[in-house]
């Protein structure tokens, strides 16, 4: 799925998968930190996959 979405133009770095058990609170914090950091490095997503106003031609 990651391959596929990135194939259609979602930037690498925007999509993350992780397996975290409910007991792994520190892993959760680490992963979220890492993801927010990586995503902040990318351009804002306003061009890609954000639906704002319905587009009418």
């Amino acid at each position: 799925m990651k391959n596929f979405l990135e194939h259609t133009g979602i930037e690498p770095g925007r999509l993350h998968f992780s397996w975290i058990s409910s007991a792994e609170s520190t892993k959760f914090v680490d992963v979220v930190k890492k993801i927010t950091h990586e995503v902040k490095m990318l351009d804002p997503a306003n061009k890609r996959y954000v639906k704002t106003e319905p587009k009418v031609d």
């Binding site: 990135e6 194939h7 259609t8 133009g9 979602i10 930037e11 690498p12 890609r48």
Partner: peptide
Amino acid sequence: SVTEIESMDAEEKWNYFE
């Protein structure tokens, strides 16, 4: 054609499918 698209960067891929 898949191999061709794989060699594009994210922007080009996005536009290709758009």
